[in-house]
Design a binder for these strands. Structure first.
Lengths: 359, 359
DNA sequence: GCCAAGAATTGGAACGATCCAGAGGGATTG
DNA sequence: CAATCCCTCTGGATCGTTCCAATTCTTGGC
């Protein structure tokens, strides 16, 4: 019934332009432009006529031309770093989906790019580390390919943040500026400490008193933040944390080894993992010893990854409100780009606990 | 040492343009353009001078202007559909990462967009289904925001493919044109049937004879393709498939229920799942019955998802070569966009089997 | 030393949108 | 009734690049 989206497109083998629509509607180019961008400037009757012409011809403004003139692309850049397989971090991917949705609602699209360098390479060399951090950003920025960036927290803070800030590039960070209290860029983060406290409270509720922590290395800001949640909650309940903590890499294998060591020496009845990855490692250890998670020993993870959801008997886990994070980030981005004032540069959201069979 | 990437950018508060560089190097605009796009046209000496000027000023060509003039954006569009949580499909995400990498090497970036409609909504209504299928594509295409699309296989084929093809839009599909043998667009796919045959061979090797299939509904092309792998391999080994097959949704719960039913009636010693999701469901069932996967009953999944990798005791799974898929897709895309001849419109890649504790 | 042919370089036009200043027309006002 | 204002609409200039045709410089052959 409707003319369909392809109507008019093949007019002369080329897509219709403002001029085409203007001719069709019997008005000037500028009037058509106004009809699309500032409809309140037109008389209702004219507006209607233009709209009909747009419909008939199946016109959509040419993005490149608009970008050129307005010096903005309505694209948000996000760097996806090569992930290490086996580390259950689908968090980024869930976030990505949410970000695409929120961006759409605000009239933006998400542009993905990669550093082009193997993550991990040259982690020791300061220089390479620096250039790795900014790899990809510089070019997109200079060529005005994107309007702004969303940067995501890495294991040890946000090395990109300082550079972007200095550069005057608009961006919003997912993750606090841990090591830069002076940073003034907008950010959104999830309160990991509170999340872990929820986990500990839940375990204490279930009668546990010897609750062990399996965390990341001390150099990880996020890891230490989550760990304070464990320590503070334990002390809040009058429980000791002595010798109940292990720290290491974010791998299944580390979680497994740490659990074995702790079980042998300290006999904890429950574990809280800094991530689902290490928590899955703990489950492996229980499996090794013929212990049943949830019945014999309780385990809680962090991230509510797919693995936590589907692996039997289901891993209780702290879930980050990534949908809300994405909404807030886009909101901040929007303010930033339209130069609206930002009252609060930082937003800290509360996670929730998803209880499953493992606890 | 080096002038650094920001050098010259602040000259007058605006990024340097071709004209700026031309002045600096003492040549014309066009010569600078040639230096970047067709360096062979320049005298080595001139080329060198221009390159130094580019370096000094920190110049990058303005993307919008280039896009406008060349009618191409060097962007590849990919629609990310809202995923149903709990269905262990991180496959798409692994593919996404690979695609970003490959695209980069070919000089493209990946633009993400979403249908803007809840997937699942209106799955019954043909009309809505149709408009859902093309949601998002049309606008990006008309506004020349992307050069081409990558479309990914859905549960029941590629409804977008036909529309895009009719429209004359360049695209490459990840997934065969199951229901459209007449389709002539390029595609890359993974041979699921062969993958499942690997799984069955492996189980037979381990001494199993009663191997059950837990699959998707008959309406799923992919599901049926994989199922023929099971059936053919079984018959190839002279084994019966009678009453050993179950079909249902791609959920953990279905896998669990199917496994319970099969175990009760047919006493299979091994299961092959059409996906890791249903295979995890089978593991749940074993867990319910106190059976140990790998020792009592063997289980194999499909996708080599993160859950398969980290959940104890490790789920044996068929792994798709997604990195290679991405490389091949970008390669086809490149040929398509530069109008090079494409010898073979379809590429079928072989998966591998990753053996873990569950078998 | 001259001419033709090719190599190197140049200036103007075009891509398709928005910005900006101004023109035309009707209603309001003194 | 003329002056003023506002509402609506218009045409030219512009964003920064690449295409195109034309111009200038080099080179080699006779």
């Amino acid at each position: 019934m409707s003319p369909g989206p392809t109507a008019g497109v093949r007019r002369n083998g080329r897509a219709p332009t403002l001029a085409t629509v203007a001719r069709e509607a019997g008005v000037s180019r500028q009037t058509v432009s106004n009809a699309l961008n500032s409809p309140h400037l037109l008389r209702p009757e004219t507006l209607d006529r233009v709209r009909r012409a747009v419909e008939t011809l199946g016109y959509s403004p040419n993005r490149a031309a608009r970008n050129l003139r307005t010096r903005s692309s309505h694209l948000i850049g996000l760097r996806v770093d090569r992930v290490v397989e086996g580390t259950a971090n689908a968090t980024m991917d869930r976030f990505l989906h949410s970000l695409v949705e929120s961006s759409k609602d605000a009239g933006y699209h998400v542009l993905l790019f990669s550093s082009g360098v193997d993550a991990g390479e040259g982690a020791e060399h300061g220089d390479l580390d620096e250039s790795l951090a900014i790899a990809g950003y510089d070019d997109l920025l200079r060529s005005t390919a994107v309007d702004a960036f969303v940067i995501t927290d890495t294991y040890r803070g946000n090395p990109q943040a300082g550079w972007l800030e200095e550069r005057g590039a608009p961006f919003v960070a997912f993750g606090r500026p841990w090591d830069e209290p002076s940073a003034s860029h907008p950010w959104v983060d999830v309160d990991g400490r509170t999340g872990v406290m929820l986990a500990v409270d839940h375990l204490v509720d279930r009668g546990h008193e010897r609750i062990a922590w399996v965390g990341w290395q001390k150099s990880s800001f996020i890891g230490e933040d989550r760990r304070t949640g464990w320590a503070d909650a334990m002390h809040g309940h009058g429980l000791s944390t002595s010798r109940l903590s292990a720290r290491g890499d974010d791998t299944v294998d580390f979680g497994r080894r740490a659990a074995h060591a702790l079980l042998e020496n300290e006999k904890p009845t429950a574990f809280v993992g800094v991530s689902d990855t290490v928590a899955m490692g703990v489950l492996h250890a229980l499996d090794d010893l013929g212990l049943a998670p949830g019945r014999d020993i309780a385990v809680v993870g962090f991230d509510d990854s797919i693995a936590a959801q589907v692996a039997p008997p289901g891993l209780t886990s702290v879930r980050q409100p990534l949908e809300q994070v994405a909404v807030d980030i886009v909101n901040l981005l929007d303010k930033l780009l339209s130069h609206k004032p930002i009252e609060e540069p930082g937003l800290l959201l509360a996670p929730t606990l998803v209880v499953r069979g493992s606890s």
